[in-house]
Design a protein around this nucleic acid. Structure first.
Lengths: 232, 232
DNA sequence: GAGGTAGAGTGGTCCAGCCACTCGACCGAG
DNA sequence: CTCGGTCGAGTGGCTGGACCACTCTACCTC
């Protein structure tokens, strides 16, 4: 017998309450925007203290299921989607290798630079320029310029004015860290990369989104080929 | 001046505490498995009540950052892959609107169709063709063909042979559901969409990835314009 | 009608206390 | 000495009650 006795695990009360609330929401087919009962009413109906209800609501709030408004009430934020946690663990566990990540990165960054070229503001251009300067200085000193590289790409993402891209870039770099270190410091790569960045910046400055996209695509494909090729 | 006065937004105390704790963890470079101070000590050092500390800890627990053990203490979670669930819930909470999602979708799907055109297998082409048939049949019967549409895009993603794209598409459609229902069934849209799909399929069949990418980009921009335009 | 106001209801925070649990020190029996 | 049990200190879990801060609305005044 593998499990002679099931280990007893008392779930904390607030967890039980949170689950009960989720079931209630799903069962009553409440719609996003609907208001839940007040904390005091929930506490009474569930037979627990208001503190426990509040803790459960905090959990639901963090999960993005519920929206708590001071002085107003608790509102439903979405249909209960256990999709997100599922997806998250999938990415963490799925066998995703370096080439796959580079392919995704290509799509995301090319689109980002398109938007950046369309909406560039002086501040973003400044950030990109100073990132390039940092890169040049590092390379001139024998470094790999990887910090400037990061800053440059981050500046592009910021210039999109679209938070979603920031999330994706974080996700991608996280996935990359997890697969292998695959250093970006290949001998002879830095000057090539620097030149590519200059092209991209020029296109963005001119607001030529097609040129920017093309340059970025080339840049990423070259980088991917170098890094992935090295692993073989 | 666009912003004469910055709107005052008092963050709830428990949120401030949670953030402060995260900073503390990062700043002190605590390692997974380390134990934090006790709730009572944290409360005293931060000058807040234990209740607020507990609420903050509940949030960190849900985020997967921390592990609270009854009668023992609060420990830093072991999993190094904690970033992913955090990101997912951030995406769930952040204010991301429909236009932002469409922009991301454009980048992802354009890149996906590129890869699909490069690697298409007979089975994937079959799936795409039958999705189109389903779409045609639905539209001929007065339907919106949305099911066929979904199948078509899913087939493209499958054809990439890259799981990461599947994950992103799920994330995107989840985000879309969350923002608003924004039905895709605009009058007169279905036939246009159908024609766009035919173009895409043709390019994929020929293995012309640039043409496929261009068609997909046009298709998504048109769709986005229709849906977003409708909301205004 | 426009503007202001007061009140009811809501979430936010705190406190003091007690319960439930864990762990390690201690101690006695073998 | 080793094993086993006990017990207490310290931890998180949970409660009830109190008060504060905020939002919304109905009502009143001009």
């Amino acid at each position: 017998m593998a499990e002679p006795l099931q280990p007893i695990t008392r779930s904390p009360l607030y967890e039980v309450v949170a689950q009960r609330l989720q079931e209630f929401i799903a069962g009553q087919s409440l719609r996003p925007g609907d208001r839940l009962l007040s904390e005091r009413e929930l506490a009474e109906q569930l037979g627990v203290s208001r503190t426990s209800v509040r803790q459960a609501l905090t959990a639901l709030r963090v999960k993005g299921i519920v929206d708590v408004r001071h002085g107003d009430g608790v509102y439903l934020r979405q249909a209960p989607a256990d999709l997100v946690p599922t997806l998250a663990s999938e990415v963490a566990n799925a066998e995703i290798d370096h080439p796959m990540i580079w392919e995704v990165r290509e799509g995301v960054e090319v689109q980002a630079v398109r938007l950046a070229a369309r909406r560039r503001e002086p501040e973003h251009l400044d950030a990109m320029r100073s990132a390039l300067v940092a890169m040049e200085r590092s390379i001139a000193g024998g470094g790999d310029g990887v910090d400037g590289d990061r800053l440059f790409h981050r500046a592009i993402v910021d210039a999109t004015g679209n938070r979603f891209f920031g999330f994706l870039v974080d996700l991608i770099s996280d996935a990359m860290d997890r697969t292998s270190e695959a250093s970006l410091t290949l001998p002879g790569r830095a000057p090539i990369s620097l030149q590519a960045h200059r092209e991209i910046l020029a296109a963005v400055e001119e607001g030529d989104e097609d040129a920017a996209a093309a340059s970025m695509r080339r840049h990423i494909m070259v980088s991917a080929e170098m890094v992935v090729g090295q692993q073989r």
